[in-house]
Simulated assay, not measured.
Amino acid sequence: MMRRPQRGFAYIAAVVILLLVAGVSVALVRMSGTQHSTVNQTLLGVRAGQAARAGIEWMFYRLTHDGKPAGCPDNSALVQLNDFKADTGFLVSVSCSITAQQPFNEGEKPDGTVSKKYVYRIEAVACNGGAASCIGNAGVTQPDYVERRRVATVCMTSEGSDCY
């Protein structure tokens, strides 16, 4: 009786190679999805940072143009900038406070009176959530929620100009 040579090894090798190619393909698709999500989160983070910076700039403009050097504009601790939400999709909350209880007396004006300087702390928080405020927004369930906070210190004279 004559033995037949074995056959079928090529089929097993082809199945193994197909499984390896399928595994690599699945890994590449998952990595591509993760990379897309990371890029999206980074872009949202940058936009939120810029919205918070715009809130700081808005409050600084209010400090220099409202003519109220002894207090924050509107005497409010928190201002919601709803126009930002309509324009950019980010809600911006801005707060302003005087960091020292007493103004600093520094130098003299040409008429001999004391030149007072006030130091303000401006804090802006920007987020893309659906809540009424970004501050204390603990119930966020959106997977693409982003929040950025910026803080600035501004020195103003009693005349309403910035310190030099």
Score class of each variant (00 low, 15 high):
residue 154 V to P: 06
residue 77 A to T: 14
residue 72 C to H: 07
residue 162 D to K: 14
residue 53 R to C: 01
residue 17 I to E: 06
residue 99 T to D: 02
residue 125 V to W: 07
residue 121 R to A: 05
residue 115 S to R: 15
residue 120 Y to S: 12
residue 41 Q to W: 08
residue 55 G to C: 05
residue 139 G to I: 06
residue 24 V to Q: 04
residue 153 T to G: 05
residue 87 D to I: 04
residue 18 L to P: 00
residue 132 A to G: 09
residue 63 L to V: 11
residue 66 D to T: 04
residue 5 P to T: 07
residue 66 D to E: 08
residue 64 T to H: 07
residue 12 I to Y: 10
residue 112 G to W: 01
residue 32 S to E: 11
residue 139 G to P: 06
residue 147 E to S: 04
residue 86 A to T: 05
residue 115 S to G: 04
residue 147 E to R: 08
residue 56 I to F: 03
residue 55 G to A: 09
residue 22 A to D: 08
residue 85 K to W: 09
residue 153 T to M: 13
residue 117 K to I: 11
residue 144 D to F: 02
residue 92 V to D: 04
residue 134 C to A: 01
residue 99 T to S: 03
residue 55 G to D: 12
residue 88 T to E: 01
residue 126 A to I: 10
residue 4 R to M: 05
residue 86 A to Y: 03
residue 11 Y to M: 11
residue 103 P to A: 14
residue 35 Q to G: 11
residue 73 P to D: 03
residue 25 S to P: 00
residue 135 I to A: 05
residue 103 P to C: 09
residue 37 S to Q: 07
residue 118 Y to N: 03
residue 162 D to E: 15
residue 89 G to A: 13
residue 109 K to E: 03
residue 138 A to Y: 14
residue 60 F to A: 09
residue 15 V to C: 08
residue 48 A to W: 03
residue 136 G to T: 08
residue 160 G to N: 09
residue 164 Y to M: 09
residue 145 Y to N: 00
residue 115 S to C: 07
residue 111 D to R: 08
